[in-house]
């Protein structure tokens, strides 16, 4: 079995997610080659061939030319699988490649079973097992689903590639994340509000518990999108990744993007009326209760300790 793994550059740095793709390939005992639009200065560490295109010419985001470059490599390597991370780069580029090759793409793979790929369904409440019917298959792997491997002392053999494909989408640069505000990464205790808080007035319930515990309050994405809590308190893939001693998830169902940002917490308490919510999978304690009643009662008792 042969796999072509796709590494990523972001803001001049090689992203570590290539190590998870290497881990996946090792788990599958696959022969590998790696594709990267990057530079010679920062290379992924593995033994084998690296097809390298110049990021100065092809930019970090330029799906038309990255697709054209990948097609060249697929033609040479004839891989059974072309593997991306299910990242903003991967989910954008993978379907373009799959379509150009006329093959299937299976998105956000979390496991392999019976020659099929397992992916989440319905906000991770269900799992779906999918079989590819095409000669090759494009995969995107859920971030964190496969163990990363790190070979600190190995370097690949570099094969330069190039194309003169004319892009249709023009990358103008990055806009940095909003700065300032609250550094949740240093908080020892975080109480987070999810959609289940119901209305903006209830943020006060969450912040009151955080204060009683001597911690900070955070929020999941829907609460930030609704502008009930400012973005600099968002926990998750597009916010902050936290690792407190105690994380209290209030009315948070547990989308993978949120779990990715808080699963390193030492102790997780979830308060949710839905005992099937995915957050229950990683919670040490799940309190099945209406948070609007439970959290104020808890806060009161903690204050009087």
């Amino acid at each position: 079995m042969k796999m072509l793994l796709v590494a990523e550059y972001r803001d001049g740095k090689l992203l570590a997610n290539i190590n998870e793709l290497l881990g996946f390939a090792a788990e599958m005992s696959a022969d590998i080659a790696v594709f990267l639009v990057g530079t010679n200065d920062l290379l992924p560490k593995f033994q084998g061939q690296l097809y390298l295109a110049d990021v100065g010419k092809h930019l970090e985001y330029n799906p038309d030319s990255h697709k054209a470059l990948l097609l060249q490599v697929v033609e040479k390597e004839l891989p059974d699988f072309i593997v991306f991370s299910h990242s903003s780069y991967g989910w954008d580029l993978a379907p373009r490649l799959a379509f150009a090759l006329g093959v299937s793409q299976i998105s956000e793979v979390v496991a392999v079973a019976e020659g099929c790929f397992v992916i989440p369904a319905c906000n991770a409440k269900l799992r779906r097992q999918v079989k590819s019917l095409s000669l090759r298959t494009v995969l995107t792997l859920q971030v964190g689903a496969f163990s990363a491997i790190d070979n600190p002392d190995t370097l690949p053999t570099v094969l330069p590639i190039d194309t003169d494909e004319v892009p249709h989408a023009h990358f103008q640069g990055y806009e940095a994340a909003a700065q300032g505000g609250v550094d949740l990464t240093k908080a020892g205790i975080i109480v987070s509000a999810g959609r289940g808080i119901g209305k903006p007035e209830n943020v006060a319930i969450i912040s009151a518990l955080a204060k009683a515990l001597g911690g900070e309050y955070g929020a999941s994405r829907p609460v930030v999108d609704a502008q009930w809590v400012e973005h600099n308190r968002q926990v998750g893939t597009t916010g902050q990744s936290v690792a407190p001693k105690l994380y209290v998830a209030c009315g948070i169902s547990g989308a993978i993007q949120h779990l990715a940002g808080m699963k390193k917490s030492e102790f997780v308490v979830a308060v949710n009326t839905d005992r099937d919510a995915p957050i229950s999978e990683i919670a040490d304690v799940l309190v099945v209760a209406d948070l609007k009643q439970f959290i104020p009662a808890l806060t009161e008792k903690i204050r009087s300790l």
């Binding site: 972001r10 803001d11 985001y61 990242s87 903003s88 954008d92 249709h168 989408a169 023009h170 990358f171 103008q172 640069g173 990055y174 806009e175 940095a176 994340a177 909003a178 973005h231 968002q234 893939t237 597009t238 916010g239």
Partner: peptide, 14 residues
């Protein structure tokens, strides 16, 4: 603007 990881955005003209 495309949303990337960590709150960063990529600006794209098309």
């Amino acid at each position: 603007k495309r949303e990337l990881e960590g709150g960063v955005k990529a600006i794209v003209k098309v």
